Amino acid sequence: MQIGANSLLQEMQSLSGEIPAGGINTQITRQVNNTSGSNFGELLSQAVGSVGELQANSASMASRLDMGDTSVTLSDTVIAREKASVAFEATVQVRNKFVEAYKQIMSMPV
């Protein structure tokens, strides 16, 4: 089953209306909606940067929890870690698709 980029974007936009304000997809939805006229390299760089921020936030929360900071709960730490994990896995999948596309282009006869 092939999933087109447009149908996936439409589905993400329709789902974003179902998530309460300040939900998980708020930042991602804003980035998707503000892509008109943007350079692909810049968008990719921003996406990788936000994955790095999620990972740094997760590590910070974990270390604060380990040190006994009472303002950080275990559930918040686990949620932050899962967000970082999902974002990283998505980034790896995008990279794999780029590598696959590159290999297909390079194997085309000229």
Rank of each mutant, 00 (worst) to 15 (best):
M1L: 00
F40I: 07
V72I: 12
G4Q: 12
S7V: 11
E100Q: 11
G52K: 03
E18F: 06
V86P: 08
F98C: 08
Q2R: 10
A101H: 05
G41Q: 04
Q31T: 09
Q93H: 00
F88L: 14
A59Y: 02
A62R: 15
S71D: 06
L65A: 08
G68R: 07
A59W: 11
S36D: 14
A59E: 01
S63C: 12
E89M: 13
M1Q: 05
S75H: 02
P109S: 10
Q10I: 09
M108T: 15
P20W: 00
A84T: 01
M1V: 04
V86G: 07
M12Y: 09
A21N: 03
T26C: 12
D66E: 15
V51E: 13
I105E: 01
G41P: 03
R30P: 08
T35Q: 00
R81D: 14
Q27L: 06
S60G: 10
A47L: 05
T29L: 05
Q2Y: 13
G4Y: 08
Q13T: 05
F98D: 04
L8T: 09
A56H: 07
E89W: 10
L44E: 15
G22I: 04
S50P: 04
V72S: 01
V51L: 10
E82F: 13
A80Y: 09
L65R: 02
L54W: 12
I79Y: 14
Q46M: 13
T91E: 11
S38N: 05
D66Y: 12
T73S: 14
I105D: 02
D76Y: 06
Q10L: 12
S7A: 10
L15K: 10
S14I: 06
T26R: 13
V48L: 15
Q10D: 09
S107R: 09
V86L: 15
K97D: 12
Q93W: 11
E18Y: 05
Q13G: 05
T26P: 00
N25H: 08
Q55V: 13
Q104P: 07
V72P: 07
S16N: 13
A90R: 02
